[in-house]
Amino acid sequence: MIIEKFFNKWIMFFLILIPTFGVIFDEPYFITLATKVVILGIAGIGLNLALGYCGLISLGHAAFFGIGGYITGILSFHALNDEMLFSWPVVVSGSSEMLIIWPIAILVSALFSFIIGLLSLRTSGVYFIMITLAFAQMLYFFSISWPNYGGEDGLSIYMRNSFPMLNTMDPISFYIISLFWLLFSIFISLRLINSPFGMSFQAIKQNEERVKSVGIETFKVKLLVFVISGTITGLAGSLYTDLNRFVSPTVLDWHTSGEIMVFVILGGMARLYGPLVGAAFFIALEQTLGSYTENWQFWLGLILILVILYARSGILGLFDKKLKHEK
């Protein structure tokens, strides 16, 4: 664990170094890429709580990522057109203030994770994997066939939502906002993992029957983890819409669920910074391989299979072992 902490310091160093480099050499593209890594990292950190620490294999986190994304898109769309979101029973208008959008995105993602969790957690094992997948697909098809918000074409919001005192269109400002949420979600995860509640959900991963036998209601614990996990991923979705100034059904596609899962596994499961490293590796791969060949996903698939077959503890795990040997 000490070695991992040493690595985490390096990761934090890079999180500051890369955008600084971007500013000095006037390469805004670097900053945007780093922002993407940070946001996808948050999504992965969300999933890691359920998947890595509690052993809930959710193949449906795209649902929460997409809900956060669409809530942001829809609110901002209404603010742009100066329309009411709905006028009954109370008048609600859109908004382009991040400080208003975030709480709403968080609440709605939490609500959806609660409902989906409540139904899915009645099952376990393979059924759980497939049901979470199916719920995400349900929302995906809904987003395609619901014409009001762009349907299949997606929804453009033209301007990033605003934050007091900051120009969010400036890449570095938006990076700082995303970085704040990254640190916040890492902090929340850290506090959760070391709390009594965290002990119980990590114990559920090891042996649920035993946890039950000491009198813990495992269903409630799992549901709460699932809701927190989905909410963090939802928040990442909200930031992702602002990053791209665009949201489309692609964010709800099951490939998104798969990719978020890949971040967690590539980086190393149940490691606090794992998803961030995984997301960084994924984006780096996309950028480097993508510049050589159109079929970069072929090589991505190959690398993934090799990682799963031969390096199950992920990138951080690989370094961890190496350092232990050197000592």
């Binding site: 193949l59 994997i129 798969g258 899962m261 079929n295 072929f298 190959l302 299979i305 799963i308 199950r312």
Partner: peptide, 22 residues
């Protein structure tokens, strides 16, 4: 375990789809 199976076969989809596109 199921997680490894899900991931490996997901990776296989990427590989096969891109392979066929190739």
């Amino acid at each position: 375990d199921h997680l490894d199976q899900v991931l490996a076969t997901f990776a296989l989809i990427l590989l096969l789809s891109e392979g066929v596109r190739w």
